[in-house]
Amino acid sequence: MSKQLEPAAALPVAVHPEVVPPTKTKKEPYPFWLGGVAATIAASITHPLDLTKVRMQATGDKGMISSLKKTVRTAGYRGLFDGISGTWLRQMSYSMCRFWAYDESKKIVGAGKDAPAWKLALAGSMAGGIAGFIGNPGVLTPSQVRLQGDFAKPPEKRLNYKNCIDGLVRMVREEGWSSLMRGVGPNVFRAILMNASQLASYDFFKAELLKTRYFEDNIQCHVTASFAAGTVATTVCSPADVIKSRIMSATASEGSSSMQVLKTSFRNEGAMFMFRGWVPAWTRLQPTTILIFVTLEQLKNLVDWTRAARGEQ
């Protein structure tokens, strides 16, 4: 009779805790107003150069240094900040809108971290169109341009706006509500060019630099990318910028249609009038672009730090 085998004692089985992959928390978006704050800081610092650019474009001043000297001679050193209130108002509306719209447009077109240049440019164009149209009805750019160019005119032709709000009120009272939309076409076109070239170029150059072994995501990379973006933006935007400045600085009696400005300028100055003021525009836009993006990156770092300090993602 065969011996019956007893069942083997059950060996203890090691129970391993279930491994749950860590959930990746979606990062909260940055405040929509960061771009406006960064642009306001940058524009305040570079305002004298922007003032010189506008006066060269609108009044025909020749030479950046001579235009600066003329401003100091006629209005003192405080004259270098003529129109600063219009600059602040414009940056906290137009610029804030364009940075917000650019981030939203990138989501719409699917422009992620390593998006191709055409997708970034498309998102920038969408943002520029939105911001340019919203900024124009408030006469932010016209009041800024007129405030900056006023003291360069002969005393009998000056508008003598006290500030940007006074400029808005007087334009409506003296020239009608239609003046609020003066130059909307060139303004929107220029905004599309600026955002497609400046914002998109910065993201593109930054991504390309980070692919190399020479750059990390730090100030050195931000400065280099923004320098390249500033050069691209200045060249692309110069023709529209000159035409826009001339249209918006013209009063109703002087004629302000785009075609009239183009015909008169081509006849009197030739095609190169579209690049008048390129040097001061580049000199102004380069530090402005660098300051905008470096400041914006630091503001984002500050937001990240404050969120981490509060235990937020």
Score class of each variant (00 low, 15 high):
Asn136Ser: 12
Met56Cys: 05
Gly132His: 03
Phe275Lys: 00
Thr52Ser: 09
Val303Phe: 07
Val242Thr: 05
Cys237Lys: 02
Leu199Val: 03
Lys300Met: 09
Ser66His: 13
Tyr30Ala: 09
Leu80Asp: 04
Asn163Val: 11
Ile192Gln: 01
Lys157Phe: 03
Asp103Lys: 15
Gln220Val: 12
Leu89Thr: 15
Gly270Arg: 06
Phe81Cys: 12
Ala152Val: 06
Pro31Gly: 09
Lys24Met: 02
Gln260Arg: 09
Ala191Cys: 14
Lys206Ala: 07
Arg276Gln: 12
Glu254Tyr: 14
Arg158Trp: 14
Ile243Pro: 00
Val139Pro: 04
Lys119Ile: 00
Ile219Gly: 08
Thr231Ala: 13
Trp100Glu: 11
Ala281Trp: 04
Ser105Lys: 00
Pro48Ala: 12
Ile108Thr: 11
Leu291Met: 15
Leu5Glu: 15
Val279His: 11
Arg90Lys: 03
Phe204Gly: 00
Thr235Leu: 06
Leu5Thr: 07
Thr74Ser: 14
Trp305Asp: 06
Ala228Gln: 10
Asn187His: 08
Glu174Asn: 12
Ser253Thr: 13
Val279Pro: 11
Ile130Arg: 03
Phe32Thr: 15
Ala14Pro: 00
Leu5Gly: 04
Phe293Tyr: 14
Gly311Thr: 05
Val184Cys: 13
Asp61Gln: 13
Ser85Tyr: 07
Tyr161His: 06
Val72Arg: 09
Asp150Ala: 02
Ser44Gly: 15
Gln4Pro: 05
Phe227Thr: 15
Ile247His: 02
Arg146Cys: 10
Ala271Thr: 05
